[in-house]
Design a protein around this nucleic acid. Structure first.
Lengths: 345, 345
DNA sequence: TCTATTCGCTTAATCGTTTAAGCAGATTTA
DNA sequence: TAAATCTGCTTAAACGATTAAGCGAATAGA
């Protein structure tokens, strides 16, 4: 039925030598294997004649490395993660590694299951964008001494390798920028979460306000549950723009929040930035093409992805080395959605 | 250093039996293996005590199936493909399969290399969104009897399994819709390509015009090279709106073309749909949030993805079975960008 | 009581590779 | 000239799991 693939021993048989010789030749170790010149050539000829392709499974089983890494992200259909995946894929291939991607949907149980599947498939290491509640996963990877790098989000209580953006600073910059542009009552929409990167973003936002002698009102901070984004973001925005202290600008702390938020803002026929200034996290074509291009904090996804892979490669070489913490700055891309307010207000 | 994972023989040693017994128990074949009750229990106890996890590499090497499928797409950072990837991933996992994704960048050589890597990793089958010039790849997979399903694009000259949208019909519907809305001079922007799905889209567009007694002008069809989208789309649109027979509506045959086209249309300060009606292929948040929501042909990505996986699963079961061709209709989602023209024009 | 059958287990081959160890024969060294 | 080294190759174990075949001992059948 299926034509059996040619193996080392097929070549060996045809040439009339042992598989050992063939192996040496095929893996470029003719010197070490002390293979004769004519025999080596004969082996190469037969190999290409039979179109020999090595079985990576056998190789991996033998030497305990699969040259495969597992990438666990929230959702590959989210452009932020899709771009990360792309970077990780490219950078890994450059290093001779294949990537297996899995989406956790921000669900720690799913992430745990995924991790187990990938561990059983003997990946050499992981790059992980953690879901909330993934402490167990991190501890388990440490326990089994599986190399891994946390990306975009990390747990300050654990000593791990990680590559993240400076979220507090990014938020601080976003908020300061709005203040400089003349906005004073600035809302902040985040996912309801106890994750560090979220609280860092909130902290940065608060500090920027305080630093400008603006007292952050509790009502300005809205936390939306990830599982019910579409519904809860409507409530949140309603309260923000129609509450006791209505806002004149808002920061979306995430791409998904921005998209859903903007949809509702359109429905309400609020004009950006006249009715509402906006700065968002995340990035995507949406922000360019919106009638009023959206200002956003650009996270250098390419740098994040590349650093994560490089760091993991380093860790694979040297599992015992000191853990590295890489923090990368986000850069404000100012657009129309946060342009200067007219003073006449 | 790294704590060696527990293997069957570790358990066997500790219980004092052969690995065969342990294997029977761990794979739920106690009956077949005729394993004693107490011994079976002892094995289970020790297994969970040592936290035994099977080595899927060894299993795969032994029985020739990896329960892995390769997914080759153009670019994971393109939302259309990202969504496909997501569907394929989910549906595969339901079937106990893991997916390895690779991006070809619409480049046949890259696709070929990717295919080889995945073949060497012993994937059980492929789902492929072909790049132009991938005939060699398809023929090779057939030659080595590797099961595969073509997704979204296929080669009519080869007898393969495939799952595609009815592109001619989709294009026909898109164009007819514009005509019904009062547009008469309709442009069509496509990638320069000899791929079947592209020419089908062009064919459907032409037929719709002819069917309405409109003679399609050659100048209305613009083909841009994938590698130079950003530059060439500007020329294309310039010529379309400022040429001898300027258009009043345009169809973008692809998500990427739409995004780049819309950016330039914004720059030109053309108003949609008053200056230019629009219908696009592809789908994404952009289309919802554009100041004038974009009409588009909705390709049911979930159905495409699910069908591709299911078809591949079937083919894995029955490699010899008759090839299946699944064609799925796209549905027009009419929005503001193609709303009825005022008669006064 | 003698032969079949069942039970509970072990042995060993297999998947495709890698690589340390060993073995003749030829060549060099002292 | 005897010992040491080099050359070109083979043998065989190992990675971790699966599973057909086989082997005593106990049980059943007649």
């Amino acid at each position: 039925m299926k034509p059996k693939k040619t193996s080392l021993s097929d070549i060996a048989k045809q040439v009339g030598v042992s598989t050992a010789l063939v192996s040496y030749v095929m893996s470029g170790k003719e010197k070490e294997g002390r293979v004769g010149l004519e025999v080596a050539q004969k082996i190469r000829d037969v190999a290409s004649e039979l179109n020999y392709q090595p079985n990576l499974l056998a190789k991996s089983l033998r030497d305990g490395r699969t040259h495969t890494i597992g990438l666990i992200i929230a959702d590959i259909s989210n452009p932020f993660f899709a771009n990360i995946a792309r970077e990780v894929e490219d950078e890994s291939r450059k290093n001779g590694y294949t990537v297996i991607i899995g989406s956790s949907d921000e669900n720690a149980d799913k992430a745990w299951d995924l991790m187990n599947v990938l561990v059983n498939r003997q990946v050499d290491g992981f790059i992980i964008v953690s879901a909330e509640g993934s402490e167990k996963l991190v501890l388990h990877l440490q326990a089994i001494k599986m190399p891994f790098v946390l990306l975009d989000r990390h747990f300050p209580q654990f000593e791990t390798d990680f590559v993240v953006t400076d979220n507090a600073k990014a938020s601080y910059d976003a908020c300061s920028h709005l203040i400089e542009s003349g906005y004073r009552r600035i809302g902040f929409v985040a996912y309801r979460s106890r994750m560090f990167h979220i609280s860092e973003r909130i902290r940065g936002y608060r500090e920027a306000l305080i630093n400008s002698q603006i007292t952050p009102k509790v009502d300005w901070l809205k936390e939306v549950r990830f599982e019910a984004t579409e519904i809860e973001i409507r409530t949140a925005i309603n309260e923000l723009v129609r509450g006791e202290s209505p806002i004149d600008a808002v920061i979306f702390s995430t791409y998904g929040l921005a998209v859903n938020g903007l949809k509702y803002i359109n429905e309400l026929r609020l004009r950006v930035p006249d009715d509402l200034g906006i700065v968002s996290f995340g990035q995507a074509e949406v922000f360019d093409l919106y009638y009023c291009p959206i200002s956003f904090m650009r996270q250098p996804i390419d740098v994040l992805g590349k650093n994560a892979v490089d760091l993991l490669m380093e860790r694979l070489q040297n599992p015992g080395g000191v853990r590295q913490h890489i923090t990368i700055d986000a850069r404000l891309v100012a657009r129309e959605s946060s342009r200067k307010k007219h003073k006449m207000e």
